[in-house]
Structures are given as C-alpha cells and as structure tokens.
C-alpha cells in the first residue's frame, strides 16, 4: 500500500520552554510493495516520522496518506491508519504481557473482535509464519530466548494483517544468527506476502543489502532520498551528516585514496566490489 507524506511537520510540547520541532516540512512517497529504509542519526526525527505513518503521533501540519486514508492535524484519531500499518518498536519483546505465547499473539486480534475458533487458527498460522514451533503456544513468553520473544511480538503485529509493516531497529541486541534469521523473515514477508516494508536503522550495511528506496533524515528534515546507489554516491553529504556509509563504501574510499583512477562510489556490496576490482585487474593485464 502506498504511503504519501505531504508537508508534514510535528512539534513536541508546543508553547512551553521545552518546545521542539521534531519534523519540518517532510515530503516523501513510499511506493506500494517496496522495501524502504529510513536512516538518520539519533534525534533526526525518524522515530517521529514512522509514528506519524502508523497513526500514533498527530501531525501539527501537513498530512500522511496511507492508501486512501488520510491523517492530518484535524483528524479525529489515527485509528484508520493503524488498521493498515503495523509497527514493531525497538525491543518489541518488552511489550509482551500475557501468560502464554498464544494469548499474547491473540491480543491484537481480540481487540479487533475476532473470536474462537478463528482466533486459534490465526495464532497458529502466525507462529508458523515467524518460525515458532506450534507446541510452544501454551508456554510463557518470558521463558524464551531474546530472539524468540521478538518473534512473538512480531507475530502479534502480523496477525493484524497490516499492508505496511514498519520495523524500528529490529535487529538491535541480536547476534549474527538472530540477525540473519530476522532478515530472512522480513525478506519473506516482503516477497511472498507482498507487504510494504519500512525499515528504520542505523546500519547502512543492511540498507545496502535489502532496501529499494532510502530516505535519510537530519535535524527533522529530509536530507537525501533515492535508491541505495543514488544515495550512497553522495559521499560528501554523508560525512557532513556524520553518518556511517556501508562498510563496502568505506573500503572503496580507502582504496581510492591510493588509486589514480578511483573506483565508482556507487559500489556498496561486496560482490560489486569484487567484480569491479576483477575488471580492473584484467584491463591492466590486457595491454601488456
């Protein structure tokens, strides 16, 4: 489902000494079915932006449109958006509260008025989808490992069948294995279920690997947007924003310090770097 943000501004604690402009005049469009990434330093406004998209923070001016639902300063509530947009916050395992895994996953469904036997069926389908063995359903979520608890929380959101899934730093605190599994799940959801996925992250390596569209925020404004190649090419701007480029881009920069004819900065995966170096190597050998 398409998301269109028009001239969006958000102000925290207006008319107090603590007033803070969190977002100013953001315009962006996330295409339906795309895997988008929102990047930016801490305090750049990315967390405010996604909460607006999820109908949890009211715009001070401008609007957010998800599908045909519009949310602006005068809207009664963001509930219409919440039906289409699922949001998984950072460390989502910290919001679990029910005594069994099944009940926790069912919580959102119950709020939507879904009853047995459909409820049970849906819960098991979701557990299967996120890779939790069905026999765990009657166990307490608090005895699971960190990565598994996170899956329970994600299943609880997916059960609501959102068209758009927003993930705020979903791999924070996970190790390599946990991280890989989580991204495999995200990719599956995006490709097989056709979800529009919005990933919020500091880690540009993940952005380089998975995203089709990137939006970079800085100081509450949209600083850069485009495909990863377009965005990572703006090498100088990244340094000004004190953001980290993907490791591959950093390595390219390091190699270029010594090369007369630099490698292109649009390289940001290891495969591309390898190919590009191989090409150079062959060219060098050919004339001799």
């Amino acid at each position: 489902m398409e998301i269109v943000v028009k001239d969006l501004s958000v102000v925290y604690m207006p008319d107090t000494p603590y007033e803070k402009q969190a977002l100013s005049h953001i315009d962006l469009r996330i295409e339906s079915g795309c895997f988008a990434a929102i990047a930016g330093a801490t305090g750049s406004g990315k967390s405010t932006l996604i909460q607006c998209m999820a109908g949890l923070i009211r715009p001070a001016s401008g609007q957010v449109q998800v599908g045909d639902k519009i949310f602006h300063a005068g809207s009664k509530s963001g509930a219409a958006l919440r039906k289409h947009v699922g949001i998984v916050f950072q460390y989502p395992e910290h919001q679990l509260f029910e005594e069994t895994i099944a009940k926790d996953i069912a919580f959102g469904l119950k709020n939507r008025g879904i009853t047995e036997p459909k409820l049970d069926r849906e819960v098991h389908r979701m557990m299967d989808l996120v890779g939790l063995p069905g026999e765990l359903s009657d166990r307490s979520p608090f005895h699971l490992s960190g990565g598994q608890m996170r899956r329970v929380a994600i299943a609880g959101i997916l059960a609501l069948k959102p068209d758009v899934l927003i993930m705020d730093e979903p791999t924070a605190g996970l190790d390599r294995q946990g991280k890989q599994e989580l991204f495999r799940l995200l990719k599956d959801l995006h490709e097989k279920q056709g979800l529009t996925v919005i990933l919020v992250t500091h880690d540009m390596n993940d952005v380089a690997k998975y995203a089709d569209q990137v939006f970079v925020l800085s100081g509450g404004k949209l600083a850069l947007s485009g495909t990863p190649a377009e965005v990572f090419e703006q090498y100088q701007i990244w340094q000004e924003l004190s953001l980290e480029l993907p490791q591959v881009s950093q390595l390219v920069a390091k190699i270029n310090e010594q090369l007369d004819v630099p490698l292109p900065y649009s390289i940001f995966t290891l495969e591309e770097l390898e190919q590009s170096l191989a090409k150079r190597f062959v060219q060098r050998e050919a004339p001799t």
């Binding site: 390595l251 390091k254 190699i255 310090e257 010594q258 090369l259 170096l277 150079r280 190597f281 060098r284």
Partner: peptide
C-alpha cells in the same frame, strides 16, 4: 588495501 593497489 596497499596490496590491492600494488596489484592494480
């Protein structure tokens, strides 16, 4: 990095 540079 310097090895790569040397080869190239």
């Amino acid at each position: 990095v310097s090895e790569i540079w040397r080869l190239l």
